[in-house]
Amino acid sequence: TRVETATETAWISLVTALHLVLGLSAVLGLLLLRWQFPAHYRRLRHALW
């Protein structure tokens, strides 16, 4: 049971790290898009909202 718990903890930390990385890359990508294509971003936002 001790090994299982350790594996579970490792998986949880791995998944958390993955989610953090994905979230950060998504935010960075959005910022980059907004910085590179302001007109396109505004049009996209206008279409979405």
Rank of each mutant, 00 (worst) to 15 (best):
P38S: 09
A17C: 15
V3M: 04
T9E: 12
V27K: 01
A10G: 13
S13C: 11
A39K: 09
R2Y: 15
T9W: 15
V21D: 02
L33C: 14
Y41P: 02
A39S: 14
W35F: 11
W35D: 03
T1C: 08
S13H: 12
A10L: 07
E4N: 06
L20R: 01
H40S: 13
W49R: 05
V27I: 14
S25A: 09
L18K: 05
L33A: 08
L28C: 13
H40A: 15
A47D: 05
A10V: 11
R2T: 10
L32N: 00
F37V: 08
R2H: 05
H40C: 15
Q36E: 04
L24Y: 01
T9I: 13
T16I: 15
A47G: 04
Y41W: 13
P38R: 11
I12H: 07
R45N: 04
L22C: 11
I12F: 11
E8I: 04
L31D: 00
G23P: 13
S13Q: 08
L44D: 01
L22Q: 01
A17P: 03
A17K: 03
H19Q: 07
S25P: 03
S13M: 05
T16A: 14
S25E: 01
T5Q: 02
L31G: 05
H19K: 06
V15Q: 13
L31P: 02
L14K: 08
T1Q: 12
R34H: 03
H19I: 15
W35A: 03
L18R: 04
T5E: 01
V3W: 02
T1K: 11
L44P: 01
V15T: 09
R43V: 06
L30R: 03
T5M: 03
L28P: 04
W49D: 03
H19E: 15
G29K: 01
R42T: 14
G23Q: 03
H40K: 13
A47K: 08
L48A: 03
T16M: 07
R2F: 11
G23W: 06
A39M: 09
T16Y: 10
T16P: 07
L22K: 01
T9K: 15
Y41K: 02
L30N: 01
L18A: 14
L48S: 03
L22A: 11
A10K: 15
E8T: 05
L33H: 02
L14I: 15
L24T: 04
L24M: 13
V3N: 01
A6T: 04
V15H: 06
A26W: 11
A26F: 15
A10N: 15
A17H: 01
L48V: 05
L24K: 00
T5D: 01
G29T: 10
T5S: 02
W35K: 03
L24G: 13
L28S: 11
L24P: 03
L22Y: 03
L32T: 08
L20N: 01
G23E: 01
L18P: 02
I12C: 09
L33M: 12
A10I: 13
Y41G: 04
V3G: 01
G23R: 01
W11E: 08
T1V: 12
L20Y: 08
W11V: 14
A26T: 12
A47S: 05
V27E: 00
L28Y: 06
F37H: 03
R2N: 08
V27T: 04
T7I: 11
G29W: 07
T7N: 09
L24E: 00
S25G: 13
V27N: 02
R34T: 07
T7V: 12
H40N: 08
G23S: 07
A47N: 05
L14W: 15
T9N: 14
H46E: 10
G29S: 09
F37Q: 04
L28I: 11
G23D: 00
L14Q: 06
L48F: 03
L44C: 04
H46Q: 14
E4V: 11
H19Y: 15
W35P: 04
T16F: 12
I12P: 09
E8P: 07
L33G: 02
A6S: 11
L18S: 10
W49H: 04
V21H: 00
I12Q: 15
L14C: 04
T1Y: 07
A17L: 09
A17N: 03
S25D: 00
G29H: 00
V21F: 09
